[in-house]
Amino acid sequence: MEYKNLKKRVRVNELFINIILFVSSITSILITLGIVFELGKESILFFKSGVSILKFFTSTEWQPAIGNFGILPLLNSTLITSLIAMLISVPFGLFAAIYLSEYASDKVRSIVKPVLEILAGIPTIVYGFFALTFITPVLQKVFGEDIVEIYNMASAGIAMGILIIPLITTMSEDALKSVPKSLREGAYGLGATKFETSTKIVFPAAISGIAAAVIIGLSRAVGETMIVALAAGSGPNFTFNPFRAAETMTGYMVRISGGDVGYDTFDYNSIFVIGLLLFIVTLGLNILSRHIIKKFREVYD
């Protein structure tokens, strides 16, 4: 008997398929490289054309027409809108998650969770419309029309907060749910009330997942575009007053690229510089959240 034929044979077809599949998965690396390369290239062109990096990060005025390129007004309003969004979404999202995970019956949860998931899929442009046509008029009624401008950071921030609530709720609820039952039973056994168990035992045990959810939410807020483009106003404005109009980084990118912008102009290059900054910030936040999950996750058996 010869066993030579039983040796592992190279199948050309399979090898071919293997290569196709490998190339497909390499595409994702190419996309990242493409992003880094294009954003980097245009940014270098931007700074080469005479904008000093120091001034870019410290000047509080953004007036491309007279050569004033200071990112601070755009960065400032991005931070303020994101902060407002987090002030709304973190408490509401977290408390709702605690309710769903610790208190709600299975029936309630089975209804509320899919509803939240569908609502999380509503396009952000709809929230932008909502901010402009509902939240702003309400704010104007509450605080007075002369205090609240038609375009303002507060309404954009609130709409973003509402947008992020489902994200934080579902992610935190998953984290809370994955805390083993034995921990809760141990706490009850020692005489803790339900509230004490939820906040002093379950919540700390799930803190890594919750922190990750909050960071992902923040990254969503920083990168969110259409809500701020519609509701926060156009034109950079260095102000800390949330009721005033101020353009964010993403809002600026939409406004500039919305009009047909010529290639290799200051405007064209500037949206790539801001894009690069945005990319770095959101990438940093995403990596941080994954790191937190990995590093601080308590593993219970």
Partner: peptide, 9 residues
Amino acid sequence: GVPSIIFGL
């Protein structure tokens, strides 16, 4: 997790 506008760029 990259914001969609970056893909636009």
